[in-house]
């Protein structure tokens, strides 16, 4: 049980580069969107993050006498995703440190690309949230042409993103606004407060569609992850456990970013189809539980990180069934 069977090792460097730069390309529209919503600082933080990721990888490979592969694209993706996971108001060193942790501790120390157990960018985010919680969870800025909560009426009342409004036990008035079609539209376009790259469901979907068509990511994981969140929060909505509708749940916070770009990471998701369905569904269940009952407003990052741990087991489970 303790033996880890690492995820697929893509051996041909040419292939890796193609896929990795494909993913980078898919992230470009989201990046452009975030510049539109939050200003040039979003690009600035993103560049710092990418540079830090590449530099860390280069130093590590240099010192340990390995092949220098810091430009194969994977470090760039990690850098972009770390920056996507922090608020735009963060100090410059936050993405730098986050990317350093993601690449050095989570990726290279475990053996480099293909051997890491956890998604580096998400682990980097978890590290940042635990280390600088006030910068990561209490430091929101409204988008340039919008409001923090996405609902103009409420903005004078409270300084909160849509999701943190939800955890404050809002009154009926607020809940009604959260459930309104205007709110859903704002969330879909992404004109609300949040981390740099998580707000626009539309742009994330466009990027992900490209990945699915090219076969660089598996739609099954995204569908089962986001779908199970939708179904469970839907049931909870009708049971009265959560006051807001399931559409709000899947468009708010990091569900789209996590479900489309992080859960689908080839290295840290299961190899087999069945494993991928289980991975996505369990991740979705965990995410809802964390979101509704844990201390932080959001649960996406931890749900995927926890499921990352089960990937070797899910792979083994599958192999054993086939072996019989």
């Amino acid at each position: 049980m303790l033996q880890l069977s690492p995820a697929p090792h893509i051996t041909s460097p040419k292939n890796i580069k193609k896929i990795m730069y494909g993913v980078v390309g898919a992230l470009i529209p989201v990046l452009m969107g975030s510049i539109y919503f939050f200003g040039w600082r979003a690009l600035f933080l993103c560049s710092l993050s990418v540079l830090s990721a590449i530099f860390t990888e280069w130093i590590f490979q240099r010192v340990t006498n390995r092949d220098i592969r810091c430009l194969d694209g994977s470090a760039i993706i990690t850098g972009i995703l770390v920056a996507f996971n922090i608020p735009v108001n963060s100090p410059w060193w936050l993405p730098v440190v986050g990317s350093f942790f993601a690449v050095f501790i989570v990726k290279q120390l475990f053996g480099g690309l293909g051997y890491n157990i956890f998604n580096p960018a998400l682990a980097g985010r978890a590290f940042l949230v635990a280390s600088w919680p006030s910068l990561m969870t209490g430091n929101w800025t409204p988008p340039i042409n919008g409001t923090l909560s996405g609902i103009p009426v409420l903005d004078g009342m409270t300084q909160a993103t849509p999701l943190s409004l939800l955890i404050m036990k809002p009154n009926l008035n607020v809940i009604q606004s959260l459930n309104s079609p205007t709110m859903i539209k704002t969330l879909f376009i992404g004109n609300t407060g949040g981390c740099i790259g998580e707000t626009s469901a539309l742009l994330l979907l466009i990027g992900a569609l490209f990945l699915f068509i090219m076969g660089y990511a598996d739609w099954r994981i995204s569908l089962s992850y986001i779908g199970s969140i939708f179904v469970i929060t839907g049931i909870f909505y009708f049971l009265g456990v959560t006051p807001v509708n399931p559409v709000f749940h899947i468009f708010s916070g990091g569900v789209m970013l996590g479900g489309l770009f992080m859960a689908t990471d080839m290295v840290t998701s299961p190899v087999t189809l069945k494993g991928r369905w289980i991975f996505g569904i369990c991740g979705g269940i965990l995410c809802v539980i964390l979101r509704l009952w844990a201390g932080y407003p959001e649960g996406v990052s931890y749900s995927i990180l926890i499921m990352n741990m089960f990937v070797p087991l899910l792979d083994r489970l599958q192999v054993r069934i086939f072996g019989r």
């Binding site: 919680p133 006030s134 969870t137 209490g138 430091n139 404050m168």
Partner: peptide, 17 residues
Amino acid sequence: RGDNENGKIDGITAATI
């Protein structure tokens, strides 16, 4: 301050509980 109009205590950012 946020909980009562007579309140005079500033809470800690991101540590309301």
